[in-house]
């Protein structure tokens, strides 16, 4: 309990520091929000095309796609705002030997490198737009979820962000062994785009591969299904198990990686 309190206090300090540095360069914050708005326009183009063509996916109306893209946008905002930029620096820190400085800090190194910086423009722009899309979509489709369903939605939201975190941490960890893994990181980064549309648009084998083997689809696909009460029970169980399994694997690899780490510099 004491440790949890300590980490919450440290995280509070990280948040404060991020806000302070952002306020110092306000123009950068505004520019960041504007760039995020451009990215959001890009996502909205997909929704627009679906509406324009009246595409029905899995016998669901275009509003379901809007609900899905809204949920995808919220998760993108949370993951990118809280973790993505921090994880991006890990290979660089390993390569340049900067990790030395971090290893001597009296807190968990994984916690430190994953949460040090918050990207508020990404978080704010995506979460606000995503929630707006979800609300508009829910007003136009059959919204079947009970209170339990809404609670489950939030639980799955946390699970989705955790899966994203663990899944995108894994290629970064490779840097402990290979030093240079930019290519693989670039590819895994782009893999995020595969979730731009609901998984039902893809063939059955791709769905199985990307739900159970490399669980990219588990990040964003199950939360909207909970809201319309169409989630398969098996997927619900997998959604709970998946972050636990990935968390275990990434933790083991992280520890091994740190043990393997040799300072490259200084």
């Amino acid at each position: 309990m004491k440790a949890v309190k300590k980490y919450m206090r440290v995280y509070g300090l990280f948040v404060r520091h991020s806000i302070m540095s952002m306020m110092e360069y306000r123009a950068n914050f505004v520019a960041g929000v504007l760039v995020e708005c451009c990215f959001l326009t890009l996502k909205l183009m997909y929704v627009f095309v679906v509406f324009l063509t009246g595409l029905s996916i899995n016998n669901l109306s275009p509003y379901y796609v809007m609900l899905y893209v809204g949920n995808y946008t919220v998760i993108t905002g949370i993951y990118n705002g809280l973790f993505a930029e921090n994880l991006w620096w890990l290979p660089f820190n390993i390569k340049t030997g900067m990790l030395d400085l971090l290893l001597v800090k009296p807190i968990s190194i994984q916690f430190y490198i994953s949460t040090k910086k918050l990207s508020l423009p990404m978080l704010a722009a995506n979460v606000v737009t995503g929630i707006t899309m979800i609300i508009i979509a829910l007003c136009n489709i059959e919204f079947n979820a009970s209170v339990g369903g809404v609670i489950l939605y939030f639980l799955f939201l946390i699970c989705g962000v955790s899966i994203a975190y663990f899944l995108f941490l894994l290629p970064m960890l490779l840097s402990f062994w290979t030093i240079e893994s930019r290519g693989l990181i670039a590819i895994s980064d782009k893999a995020w785009d595969i979730n731009m549309m609901p998984m039902h648009i893809y063939g059955r084998y791709i769905q199985r591969l990307l739900v159970f083997i490399i669980p990219f689809f588990a990040i964003t696909n199950f939360q909207p299904l909970v809201l319309i009460d169409r989630l398969d029970f098996r997927y619900g169980v997998w959604m709970i198990l998946c972050p636990l399994i990935l968390g275990f694997i990434s933790r083991v690899l992280f520890r091994r990686g740190v043990r393997k780490y040799e300072s490259a510099n200084g």
């Binding site: 893999a191 595969i194 549309m197 648009i201 893809y202």
Partner: peptide, 9 residues
């Protein structure tokens, strides 16, 4: 990845 999404769509 972008191509898979767009062509499937």
């Amino acid at each position: 990845f972008t191509l898979i999404v767009l062509t499937t769509l």
